[in-house]
Nucleic acid binder design. Structure first.
Lengths: 209, 209
DNA sequence: GTAAACATACCAACCAGTCGGTATGATATC
DNA sequence: GATATCATACCGACTGGTTGGTATGTTTAC
């Protein structure tokens, strides 16, 4: 009874704004998404927006940080396959998962920071840096698994784990662009399948001959 | 003396506007680039802009079409290596060329239509379609060379020429995103090297063991 | 001379950001 | 335990500047 809930969890407005930004920016881009639009989608007032964020740019930075946390959870923590013991199998399951995600409209599977950084790399060092941090975090986390696979199975041509991780990220980002251009995830999925074949070949040149 | 220069090449304003759009959009994105900014960079008045284009969107469509012509010339017509007889060597020279291009600031090597389509796919069907046409044209042209290589050397797993062409395009588009995020083309180049290794392995699994 | 190729001045809508104010709840004072 | 004080969360009207686009006039080409 005396359970002091202290103050009611009033994270609400701030995180609703970030969620709305994730959705709208992925659909329309950063510059084309206005603060008013984000407020309307989040169902909060403009006053609330500027209470939580000093500027639109600051929201972008906060949304990038939140995106990192969200992605790490969604991709590296929650899914059951992350507990596969064999590191190569785990890596391939990761690729299959990214493949599986390529469904529905682009705002459902594309990358918030990847979209944002394209428009802001030259105009806002804060946004560029926040986006880079988010993408780098993904690559470094993925490189851990790749490193484990290399340790157990070796890899061709002395390919490094971090280099392959960046390549995975590049293929995914490119697949998102193609999916938007084609208005269909079909070529994007094909491209990820090429990536999977490449990884298999890197770890065993003659396996699925 | 009476050398009638006939009419001075007055393609000038229109194509200066398109060139300025190519540069500015690649640097800042489509939405963040204003009509006034494009006019200023092109050194023409706003009246001239709307004399040649009914709207900013129409400039985008025209710039996409111009981009297709420019890319076809720059990549598939002018370079000396396009006359290499062996189709696989020609394909690998193509990849090397794309690798070689990844230098200097991003607005010098990134893709105008790739940048534009990310911001416009959901808001302007005209821009999305024009961008898709440009990217598709590149892929279909590249697929001709890949098809020739397949005919001469075979390829693993029954990979199709057009599918591999889209994968090349995806890796390049992804590499552009990574280069912008990292503020350096290093990881982008590494990714294209992965692509080159993949293509080599597809055409000869055990070649450079 | 006339039609295309520009230039200048202007407009309404929209933009990010400001500001005065309110509602609420925790803490301090007596 | 009632009251004063303070901090946080939020609201929505407002502002100065920017936006894409227009109206109208001038210059150039043939």
């Amino acid at each position: 009874m005396s359970s002091r809930v202290t103050h009611a969890p009033r994270q609400s407005a701030r995180s609703k704004l970030i969620d709305a930004a994730h959705m709208l920016v992925r659909k329309q881009g950063y510059a084309a998404t206005s603060v008013d639009e984000i407020c309307a989608a989040a169902g909060v007032s403009k006053g609330a927006f500027f209470h939580h964020f000093a500027s639109k740019e600051e929201l972008g930075v906060a949304a990038a940080e939140q995106w990192t946390a969200r992605a790490d959870e969604l991709i590296f923590t929650l899914p059951p396959w992350v507990r596969i013991e064999d590191p190569l199998e785990r890596l391939l399951a990761h690729i299959d998962f990214r493949l599986f995600m390529l469904e529905g409209p682009p705002e459902g599977f594309t990358c918030f920071v990847g979209t944002m950084v394209q428009e802001s790399f030259a105009s806002s060092e804060a946004l560029r840096h926040a986006s880079e941090a988010s993408i780098s975090a993904y690559c470094e986390r993925l490189a851990v698994d790749i490193e484990a696979a290399i340790a157990r199975y070796r890899i061709r041509d002395g390919v490094s784990a971090i280099s392959l991780a960046w390549h995975v990220q590049a293929v995914l980002q490119g697949a998102f662009v193609i999916a938007k251009a084609r208005n269909s995830p079909r070529e994007a999925r094909d491209s990820v399948l090429h990536l999977k074949r490449y990884i298999k070949m890197l770890f065993d040149g003659g396996e699925n001959r």
